[in-house]
Design a protein around this nucleic acid. Structure first.
Lengths: 194, 194, 194, 194
DNA sequence: TATGAATGAGACTTCATTCAT
DNA sequence: AATGAATGAAGTCTCATTCAT
């Protein structure tokens, strides 16, 4: 597998993101990717066993970026509602940048019958958000009569799916703020102690 | 396309659902489908222009079944909260029956860059649910400070995504009721006027 | 496998014999064969699952030709020593015509770990020769203190291997008669009752 | 080639025998061999110009072992019939140990159109056996009306081919002695002066 | 309308070989 | 002498699609 150079691995990863975004997963051949990456055909197989192995790698890459950004911009001391606002905002940002590839990752994993991989990749993010919820419960910011794990997944899905739909639907830019607010309010009304 | 023979069309549709469920979309060839349908290779093209054209047809078929069931079991006079409960329950039922194919439809459409088709197929269902929400607002069952269209999509997505996750994650059967209840409560707390 | 046309099957078989003879098994690509056969690349796979599946088909074809010739030229009433002489002569003839391909068949089967197939193909020929030996024992032409099955295989191998060696070694044509006689005498001295 | 390091050469040779035996010639890549030998990819080419160059090296190695064993166990003073018995016995031993690789060597050479190499490798063995036959003629142990060179090859082939067939056919162990005896008697009846 | 043999482009993948270290 | 990452040509095989029957 990963023989030596981190550089080549990254080249392939970024080339694949680029080409997938442009042509879609199905219409992209490995030849397209290697040409774009500026490497030889065979080199691809030193780093990835197949085209489909790119999907989890890309998914991991994208989520890592998003998650890093969240951890950067959010202090664990912040109020839960501030944290939520940030997450919504950053999720929209990431989805804008990677709008084509995001659906593709989800689909790619789904299509290969490997939703478990998806869950694995999301695990650290889920864990972190569960911790935020638990903390918020302790701080009486949100009600306690909820299943933390399930609520975590529901909220994250709600945000991501809406963001996805927003950018893919090519809806009017002006509405972005309202979309974000609608999600925020939906969740807040449901969970707030006040 | 031209409905030459409803019978053959259905044969192809059901064969494709069966084979996609077993082998996944990518690994299924048209040859697999026609063998399973018991028709000739060329006959396929009299009913569908390509493999990918099956996806919206399947999606339409599945949603129609689910939507029919909902309309059967729900009276428009019912309280909104009863309707919601039914929808959640039926969505879980459908997802159990078609668990493999549901993700695949979503993915299939996503992967072909045709989320618009998805929205089109869902349009009647969305419209019906919007009407239920509007009615509920008028009946003061739910608060009025919401974007009806967006809330509709958020709720339906919330239910479908959780159901999907539930059956794909092969989680403990005992939890199904709790999952359904958690979704219901999440939405009720957010929208109820009480 | 063999869908329809005997014609296409034969085209492939003869093209493969021709090309294998010229370039050897390893250096022959399926592309070479289909070009020579005048058919499309994909058509090959309607008749044979892979390149290596050609080998037993060729072997069968060649042995069938040889065996037919033997049965044509030999009457079961002939003396065993006449029959043997004919077999030697015909084996040399066949080996001359198909000298390159004969080794290749043997090798091809060997290399694929499928000597059993070889035995299966030879089975009718072995059986026929066993019957001739048994008959010769009854007619007291040859001694009876032998294992008929094993002796059959030893004799046939002796003839084929020597013929093979003769033509591949490119030895002087003049010697062919002497080679044949040497084999004949070797066997006759060993088995004759006289 | 240049014997840079006898040790590495042997490592490659033995690794190739092992891997060829397990996977067959075709399915073995040089990568398989170097991994098994515990050397680097490039190192292979310091000792062998190509994969096919391994075949004659292996053949040479195997025949050398067998021939050494024969010369060890046989005194040139022994009666021809004793020598023959030993050769048969040792050939069966060698074939048992190297059953997979033996056919492969023969095939490998055949397939590369280089039967001459085979003859070259066998030359010393043939020569030695010719000498034994000539001596036996002089000692009146065997008849003189034979072509010594041709008879040598026929006998050796007879033994090797039967042994090969015996071990590849997975025949009942109990029969090994009878097989050996059948060959011995076949030859003895043919050549003995008595 | 239905058939299914034939097509042929092109995808994936392997692997012998090179060469800078 | 030894290494092993990189190469890229070439091969196998699949499969959507066509078309004569």
């Amino acid at each position: 597998m990963g023989k030596k150079s981190e550089e080549k691995y990254d080249k392939i990863l970024h080339a694949s993101i680029k080409v997938f975004s442009e042509k879609g997963y199905q219409n992209t051949s490995i030849t397209d990717i290697v040409k774009n990456a500026g490497i030889a055909q065979g080199t691809f197989y030193l780093y990835f066993p197949s085209k489909s192995a790119l999907i989890p790698a890309i998914a991991d890459h994208l989520l890592t970026i998003t998650f890093e950004k969240i951890k950067e911009r959010v202090s664990e001391q912040d109020s839960f509602w501030n944290i939520l606002k940030q997450i919504i905002s950053i999720t929209f940002e990431s989805n804008e940048t990677y709008k084509d590839i995001v659906v593709l990752c989800y689909s790619g994993l789904a299509i290969e019958h490997s939703m478990e991989k998806w869950e694995m990749i999301y695990q650290p993010y889920y864990q972190w958000f569960e911790d935020r919820i638990t903390q918020a419960i302790l701080k009486k910011e949100i009600i306690q009569a909820i299943d933390v794990k399930l609520t975590t997944k529901m909220i994250i899905n709600l945000i991501e799916n809406t963001a996805e739909r927003y950018f893919i639907g090519n809806e009017n830019d002006a509405l972005e703020a309202e979309y974000q607010e609608e999600i925020f309010n939906f969740v807040k009304r449901s969970l707030s102690t006040i």
